[in-house]
Amino acid sequence: MSAPNTALRPDLQLIADWITPGSRVLDLGCGQGELLAWLKTHKQVKGYGVDLEVANIVACVAAGVDAIQGDLETGLADFGDATFDHVILSQTIQAMRHTEEILNEMLRVGREAIVTFPNFGYWQNRLQILKGHMPVSETIPFEWYNTPNIHWCMLGDFENLCAKNGVRVAERVVMDQGRRVHWLPNLLGSLAFYRVTRAPGRAKA
C-alpha cells in the first residue's frame, strides 16, 4: 500500500504536530492506524499502535502499522520503562475505568504523554444539560444508555488529576470544530489536548 497522502483529521494533525521527527511513538487506542501511518511517512517515527479490536489490528496491518492487540485496562505490561518518546491516548481516557492507572502507565513507558478528550464543559453540553438532557454532540455521539464514556471531565478536572499524580502539564490546546480556542476554553472548546510529563523530582504518585 502506498503512503497515505490524505490530510489527517484536524485533531490528529494537532497531535502529529507535537511529535518529534524520528522519535519512538506508542499510540494507545490506535484505531485503524491512520495517525501512525501518517507519522511514519511524514516524520519517520517508529513505534506501535495498541487496540482492543482485531478488526483494527487488521486495518493497521493494511496501513503498514505495527499494532498489538490488547486491553488498555490491564495496563501496559507489554512495554518496558522509558521505551517511547511520546505515548498518545486520543479521545479514549473518558471511556476508561482505570483512568489514573493509564495516566501513570503512559508516563512509565514514555517520556511524554499526549492525552486528548472531549471537554464536558463545552457550552453546547451545558446547554443540553440546562434543557434537561445528557449531551449528545459531534464529539459525544452517544446516548446516555449506550455511551462507552464513563469518566467525563472538564479542563480543570483533568489538570487536578495531573497535579494529584505528580504530572506536569507542558502544553494545553483547546479546539472547536477544527479551530483553536483561546478565549474561555472550558466553555468554548469541545476537544482538549494535553502534553504532559512527569513533574521533576516526582516519581509515580
Binding site: 489490528i57 492487540q69 490488547g70 507489554d78
Partner: peptide
Amino acid sequence: RELVKALIAADRHVVYGE
C-alpha cells in the same frame, strides 16, 4: 504475549493478534 513483549523490548517490528 511473552514473545511479543520480548520483541517490543528488542525493538523489532511486530504485529500481534489475539
